[in-house]
């Protein structure tokens, strides 16, 4: 027998059935939890944007009254400044829903990226999206090593426009021993943002 389409179809079907071994957990509560968290992050982003607008309006009013009544003194719109913030948060509720599998204690970490970073491009001039607009992205699981990437297929371009970055991910790993596990996230965006990092100390019982 060879890897004919029929043989592959059958083999994939048999392989997929291995997933049936893992169907004991009711995933519905975890899904609602994830959806609520995503909604909270979206609301926080909108609130942040509204706060920024309110601040600009307040500064404008403080500088000389309503802009539409003083056409001769309308201040130039301040250029948005590039920035990047990253967040790490332990998700114990989600981790509790994962099984050990002999790999250690499951640990789930939520990673968030929020910022305004320079657009990156590849050699074909195509635009990067999401976290592809980062030069590097690394998660250090001390002392096990790191995941992520150290380089990008996209590159920085001088004078590139700024693009919003609002992403959140969940990562899972397994802790081999009880105790404190330091985790560090490092992300690098094009200049002038540079590298930002965030640390989290996970306690595994």
């Amino acid at each position: 027998m060879n890897l004919s389409p029929d043989a592959l179809d059958r083999a994939l079907t048999e392989l997929a059935e291995r997933a049936d071994l893992d169907e004991s957990v009711d995933r519905v509560p975890a899904i609602h939890h994830r959806a609520r968290r995503a909604a909270t992050v979206r609301l926080a982003s909108v609130a942040g944007a509204l706060a920024a607008v309110a601040a600009v309006v307040a500064i404008t009013l403080g500088a000389g009254g309503l802009p539409f009544t003083r056409a001769d003194s309308v201040p130039a719109k301040p250029a948005p400044k590039p920035f990047l913030t990253v967040g790490l948060e332990s998700q114990e509720e989600l981790a509790a829903g994962l099984s050990d599998r002999g790999l250690g204690t499951p640990v789930v970490v939520q990673i968030t990226f929020h910022g305004l970073v320079p657009q990156m491009y590849n050699d074909a001039g195509e635009l990067a999206t999401g976290t592809d607009n980062l030069l590097s992205l690394q998660m250090y699981w001390d002392p096990r090593g790191w995941d992520g990437r150290g380089s990008s297929e996209y590159h920085c371009v001088r004078g590139a426009p700024l693009v919003k970055m609002d992403n959140e991910f969940l990562m899972t790993t397994y802790a081999f021993r009880a105790g404190t596990h330091p985790i560090t996230l490092r992300a690098t965006a094009c200049d002038p943002v540079g590298e930002v990092s965030e640390k989290l100390s996970l306690t595994v019982r």
Partner: peptide, 12 residues
Amino acid sequence: LDTAEDLLQSAY
């Protein structure tokens, strides 16, 4: 299996 569950829950 764990990554599969993660992907599935993320999609839902």
